[in-house]
Amino acid sequence: MTVLIDLILLAMLVITAFRIIYIKDLFSVVMLFGIYSFLCAALFVTLDAVDVAFTEASVGAGISTVLMLSTIAITGRKEKLSLHSHTFATLIVLLTGGALIYGTFDMPLFGLADNPVHEHVAPRYIETSPTEIGLPNMVTSVLASYRGFDTFGETVVVFAAAIGVFSLLGVRGKPTELLAQEQGLTQHKVLRVVAKISIPLIILFALYVQFHGDFGPGGGFQAGVIAAAAFILYALTFSLRKAVGVVSPRFVKYLAPVGVLLYASVGLVSMLNGANFLDYNVLAADPVDGQHYGIIIIELGVGITVFSVMLGIFYAFAGQVEKANVQ
């Protein structure tokens, strides 16, 4: 039965992607892309990757879509006729596809438990991580401890994106610079009331995800995105001007590096204790406790960085939209 669900989802995925090729209205393209992300996420759930689904839903369908929407709000909705050589593209695509299909023939069959992937490194994670690290969520264990350096890199990637966006679009946003009068959605009374009720709940939910990443799906990254999404909702329904008044862009800008440094400091502390970078065992007398503390702090670092970066990026984009709108 799950196979059937899997197949249907895959088919929908392909159809959506295929449709995106031919739609010239970028607005629709972006909406379909949102759907595509939702489908991907649904597929991830059926493939047991709950953490990934969590992330894909909040990032792909959430942040990415919002950013794309704000971009086309400035750049326009219509894709003009393409003048590119489609034969060339088709050729390259067929070549790539051909190579990949060729590669699939020796791929391990889908879902067998004795595939090489499941035999060498993974068993250790599955079998000993609950005792070694002490967390039920193996993904968090691997993410934060075994491959903690990857996650540090990931945090830095987010930070790098912030640097890029801030330097490209500027950290705009003294409230005075922004549009004074409210217009559009901000006049939707219903929307404002509902948003106002849900925003605290969303933030609390984000914090719940932040602190319960050890036990279920979620963690710092997802929490950061959801928290940022709450403020984005506020900015969308109450105007950017007000959102900037609640959390200022300057604050966001200074918060982002703090998260990265928080993460790094855990590593440095373990170095000071004579262990390797990010070795949490030495953070407490009992290694398992040490692991737990280390993971909580680094997840917090990730959460802080991701939250501030996502919000900062949104501010930068929305600021551009307002600017374009004023002109």
């Binding site: 930070f159 640097i163 590096p257 990265v260 440094l261 790094a264 390797n276 970078f277």
Partner: peptide, 19 residues
């Protein structure tokens, strides 16, 4: 820690610079 420092130093310096 010699082998990890070439990465760590700039990685730590980058957020500091922003601060």
């Amino acid at each position: 820690h010699l082998a990890v420092l070439p990465v760590l130093l700039p990685l730590i310096a980058a957020p500091l610079v922003v601060l």
